[in-house]
Amino acid sequence: MKNLKFSVVVVLLMTAFFSYSQDVNLDMATERGLMSKTTSPKIQAQGSPYIDENFKPVKIPSFDTKVYLGRYNAYNGEMEIKVKQDVVIALDVNSADYEVVFVNDSKTYKSFNYTTERGISKKGFLVVVNSGENANLLKAERIKYYDKVPAMSSYQQDKPAKFRKESDVYYIQMKSGSVVHLPVKKKDLLKAFPKHSKAIKTFLKENKVKLSKEEGLAKVANYIGSL
């Protein structure tokens, strides 16, 4: 009975300490004007949920001029920021809008409200691929988690849980600010914009636009934004 009471006390103390540490981390972020939340629990699997495991120099222009270290968890859709040595928080896009610039990569992420290809409304980070006169081309970087697959027989081996990088999904930000899915297949593209399908088809042909390249997608996105 004494051992049980001791174990309960230890668990309570550890829980209190963990909660205190989380609160301190969030308070430190709040002091810098960053609306934040704790990062999601780590999952043990092959591969990585991050676009790049390494923390890299980033700026968050709308908040201050300080250079932080950051990385993007594409599986959870979380932008992790190291606000101090060993203190990492996730930016809370549901509480504020963010622009995060990866300084050395010339790569910018912004938080957007958008509608997925399945018609689901979301808010999260998208990469700004191109800023056009009539529309912006954005993309969602995706990493999926695949659970462990047990062996079907003693002659086979278990397939371990893993993260896998999936194809990027593209979007258009219109002048109105709305963000909609941009299909990368010609047939699906024309179907997505039925009112302008003939004009878009002509534009693709006359300008020899290749939808397999981001340069081509940027051109058609800007054209669609002008219609």
Score class of each variant (00 low, 15 high):
residue 197 S to C: 04
residue 166 E to L: 01
residue 94 N to R: 07
residue 55 F to H: 01
residue 227 L to H: 13
residue 120 I to H: 06
residue 87 V to C: 03
residue 79 M to K: 10
residue 185 K to T: 12
residue 180 V to Y: 09
residue 47 G to L: 01
residue 119 G to V: 09
residue 66 K to Q: 15
residue 206 E to I: 11
residue 31 E to R: 14
residue 211 L to P: 09
residue 199 A to S: 14
residue 29 A to M: 08
residue 173 Q to S: 08
residue 14 M to L: 14
residue 84 K to I: 00
residue 103 V to G: 01
residue 63 F to P: 01
residue 65 T to S: 15
residue 158 D to A: 04
residue 15 T to C: 12
residue 81 I to K: 02
residue 170 Y to M: 10
residue 115 T to I: 15
residue 46 Q to G: 12
residue 120 I to G: 05
residue 140 A to C: 05
residue 36 S to Y: 05
residue 70 G to N: 06
residue 172 I to G: 05
residue 68 Y to D: 06
residue 136 N to K: 13
residue 5 K to N: 12
residue 204 L to P: 06
residue 174 M to H: 10
residue 227 L to T: 09
residue 179 V to K: 03
residue 108 T to N: 00
residue 43 I to Q: 07
residue 71 R to A: 09
residue 55 F to C: 06
residue 181 H to Q: 07
residue 32 R to T: 10
residue 190 L to S: 02
residue 119 G to M: 07
residue 224 I to E: 05
residue 45 A to G: 02
residue 180 V to E: 14
residue 208 K to C: 02
residue 16 A to C: 13
residue 198 K to L: 07
residue 187 K to D: 14
residue 20 Y to Q: 03
residue 221 A to S: 14
residue 203 F to M: 07
residue 37 K to C: 09
residue 220 V to Q: 00
residue 121 S to T: 09
residue 143 I to P: 01
residue 80 E to R: 05
residue 54 N to R: 13
residue 148 K to G: 08
residue 53 E to R: 03
residue 160 P to L: 15
residue 65 T to V: 15
residue 206 E to Q: 13
residue 162 K to H: 11
residue 102 F to V: 03
residue 76 N to I: 00
residue 147 D to N: 13
residue 69 L to Q: 13
residue 48 S to V: 10
residue 170 Y to D: 04
residue 188 D to S: 15
residue 111 S to W: 06
residue 185 K to V: 03
residue 180 V to P: 06
residue 101 V to N: 13
residue 216 G to L: 00
residue 41 P to N: 08
residue 6 F to H: 08
residue 9 V to N: 14
residue 72 Y to G: 01
residue 180 V to K: 02
residue 198 K to E: 06
residue 14 M to Y: 14
residue 191 K to V: 13
residue 163 F to D: 04
residue 221 A to V: 03
residue 148 K to T: 11
residue 50 Y to S: 06
residue 136 N to P: 05
residue 137 L to W: 07
residue 132 G to K: 00
residue 53 E to K: 07
residue 44 Q to T: 15
residue 120 I to F: 10
residue 196 H to Q: 12
residue 184 V to M: 06
residue 89 I to N: 01
residue 225 G to L: 11
residue 81 I to M: 04
residue 87 V to E: 00
residue 10 V to K: 09
residue 190 L to V: 00
residue 152 M to I: 08
residue 98 Y to I: 00
residue 143 I to G: 02
residue 39 T to K: 14
residue 208 K to H: 10
residue 23 D to G: 07
residue 141 E to H: 03
residue 136 N to A: 11
residue 62 S to V: 15
residue 73 N to P: 08
residue 131 S to W: 04
residue 36 S to V: 12
residue 205 K to Q: 10
residue 197 S to H: 11
residue 184 V to L: 05
residue 152 M to V: 07
residue 157 Q to F: 14
residue 71 R to C: 07
residue 139 K to F: 03
residue 70 G to Y: 06
residue 120 I to K: 12
